[in-house]
Design a binder for these strands. Structure first.
Length: 298
RNA sequence: GGCGCCUUGGCCGAGUGGUUAGGCAUGGGUCUGCAAAACCCAGUACACCGGUUCGACUCCGGUAGGCGCCU
């Protein structure tokens, strides 16, 4: 049984295509999106109207991380396969997407207090000193992390301290073995069209009432550091409407550009045109899947 | 019509007679528990025309556009 992965930038129409695929074959959708895991902001995070797994599973107060997402996503995929259906892993977060489909062998979470401790060192002693400390503890990790990259220096220190390392035992962030036979697809929409869709979708968000949604949500929950990264959360809450729209459009475009990098980097990805009705794209995907299933597995 | 002020790279925004401010956006790159994140690299602008000067984006004069006040 095949797993289908559909990757694409925001507004490339992933959700609609996935929904259309479900009309054509027994399948279930597993979301690979680092922000849709949060509950409480369906409009802002662009939640699909169709059922998808791993959407809205955590409160905004929760600090999400791939390490926590990965086993859940993999379990969902296995369960769908077990039920004799096709798992459709759909998403725009490259790292989550990979984690759902492949065994990344993610290193352990930081031990309690470790992050704060190293953060403090970085803060007080400075980037160079923190990096020098890493150089002592884990030279290979130090070699691959820039001193200014605070996140990774801290993370590398956490790991080095416990005898682990930031350097993966096996490379394979962008490609490598899948957990199951997988058909990997990338939805491609020409940039001008994508920009148009982003602008349109952003306007629609405001018509749908994002402002109220955000205001209400912030009243009831203090977003975790991860959740507070949700695009537009800050802008919608603090800027006047027109400025917020403008800012959100710009940020979303930038995000889409970043996703396009993943689209280019993911190995084994088959590019499928998505600047057409979702049903057509879905039909092509299903056809590809049927062809692939007839081929002997490698 | 008169007087005064302003004009910096896609946008915002410092500044100096001779050293690339910076931020955002843009383009390229990195990436293994914060990834809608974080980090790295790139682009030499001073409205236009003349003058002063060894040298002007910076000083002087004029032109154009903008803002304000006055008749």
């Amino acid at each position: 049984m095949l797993v289908i992965g559909v990757f694409g930038p925001t507004a490339s129409g992933k959700s609609d295509v996935a929904a259309a695929v479900r009309e054509l074959m027994p399948a279930e959708v597993v979301s690979a999106d680092a922000m849709q895991v949060y509950d409480g902001l369906p409009i802002l995070t662009n939640r699909s109207a169709h059922p998808e797994r791993l959407v809205g599973i955590w409160p905004l107060t929760h600090a999400a991380a791939v390490g926590e997402y990965a086993p859940l996503a993999q379990a969902a995929v296995d369960e769908i396969l077990g039920a004799g259906k096709t798992p459709l892993v759909v998403g725009g977060t490259g790292l989550y997407f990979r984690a759902a489909l492949a065994e990344l062998e993610l290193p352990p979470a930081p031990s309690p207090g470790a992050r704060e401790r190293w953060e403090r060192l970085y803060e007080e002693a400075g980037a160079a000193a923190a990096h020098a400390r890493l150089e002592e503890l884990d030279p290979p990790a130090a070699a691959r992390v820039h001193p200014n990259d605070r996140r990774r220096v801290v993370r590398a220190l956490e790991l080095a301290e416990t005898g682990s390392s930031l350097v993966p035992r096996r490379e394979g962030l962008f490609g490598g073995a899948w957990r199951h036979p997988t058909l990997l697809l990338g939805l491609d929409v020409p940039k001008p069209e994508l920009d148009r869709r982003i602008a349109e979708r952003t306007r629609r968000m405001f018509e749908a009432g994002v402002e109220q949604e955000v205001r209400h949500t912030l009243l009831t929950a203090e977003p975790s550091t991860t959740a507070s990264k949700i695009l537009g959360l800050h802008e919608v809450a603090t800027l006047p409407r027109e400025e917020a729209i403008e800012a959100l459009i710009v940020r979303t475009r930038r995000y889409a550009a970043y996703q396009r990098k993943w689209l280019r980097r993911l190995e084994g990805l088959v590019i499928v045109a998505a600047d057409r009705p979702p049903e057509e794209t879905a039909a092509e995907i299903v056809a590809l899947a049927r062809t692939r299933e007839r081929l002997p597995s490698p």
